[in-house]
Amino acid sequence: MTDSADRAIIAHLRRDGRATVAQIAADVSLSPAAVSRRLARLERSGVIRGYTAIIDDTRVGGLEAFIEIRMLGAVDAEQLADLARGIPQILEFYNVAGDPDLLVRLRVDDREELAGVVNQLRRTGLIAGTKTLIVLNSWIRT
């Protein structure tokens, strides 16, 4: 369970994941030792699952896309999640309510690579249909 101090630490990390314990402590009005203990607890409990860089993919190149997936019958979404973990271009995988059944976000170098990933998913025999959406512009809350 998190309290207001934990939420303040999390908010600081969302703004600056590279902040030092001392910087966070000054921002949230706690001692560095208290912030260190709280960070360790948040990491152990899984609230903080890791630290990452936010990349501006428009400067990297390539295509970002979403694939809507409709599963065949009563296919277990975990089967597709296992499949997705084996496809390095897939960045995120969501099991959603409604239509479609699953939503996948991926990044590829070009349209040919995108077609290859879509075909790889379709060939599993687990999927009734797909719809691919290519990202033109994006905005991400940081």
Rank of each mutant, 00 (worst) to 15 (best):
E92M: 12
D76F: 04
A8K: 12
L83F: 11
G62P: 13
T20H: 10
R49M: 05
L133G: 01
L136C: 02
A11S: 14
V47A: 11
Q120M: 06
M1H: 15
T58S: 15
D76H: 09
I127L: 10
Q89I: 00
N95M: 06
K131P: 00
R122N: 07
R70K: 03
M71S: 07
A19M: 02
L39K: 05
R105I: 00
A34C: 06
R70I: 01
A84R: 02
D3A: 03
A81W: 08
I10V: 10
A115Y: 07
R111W: 12
Y51I: 01
V75T: 09
D110S: 09
Q120L: 13
V108L: 12
A84K: 02
A40N: 08
M71V: 11
D101I: 01
R38H: 10
I24N: 02
T142I: 10
L39E: 04
G50A: 01
R70L: 02
V96K: 02
H12I: 01
A8Q: 09
I87Y: 13
G116P: 06
G129D: 09
A65C: 05
A34K: 03
I87L: 14
S4E: 15
V117I: 14
R37F: 11
L106W: 08
E43Q: 15
V96G: 05
D109A: 12
S4C: 04
N137Y: 14
S29Q: 08
R123G: 04
S36K: 10
L114P: 10
D99Q: 08
I54M: 13
A77G: 08
R141D: 14
D57W: 14
I48Q: 05
P100V: 00
A53H: 15
S29R: 06
R49D: 02
D16R: 00
L80R: 00
W139M: 14
I67R: 01
D101E: 09
R70T: 03
D76N: 15
G98K: 02
I48C: 03
E43V: 12
I69T: 00
R85M: 08
N95D: 11
D3M: 06
L103Y: 04
I9M: 04
G86E: 11
L13S: 02
L63T: 07
L114Y: 12
L106H: 10
R15D: 12
R105W: 09
D109S: 10
I55C: 08
G73N: 01
A77E: 07
I90C: 11
A26Y: 01
I54Y: 15
A74S: 12
V35Y: 10
I54K: 10
T142V: 11
G73H: 01
L91R: 14
L91D: 15
N137P: 03
A22V: 07
Q23V: 01
F66W: 05
Q79D: 05
R7W: 07
L42T: 01
L39C: 08
L106E: 07
A25S: 08
T142G: 12
I134Q: 12
Q120C: 04
I54S: 12
R105Y: 13
D57C: 04
D99P: 04
A19Q: 06
G73L: 00
T142E: 13
V47H: 13
G73W: 00
G116L: 03
G73R: 00
R49A: 09
L121Y: 04
S31C: 09
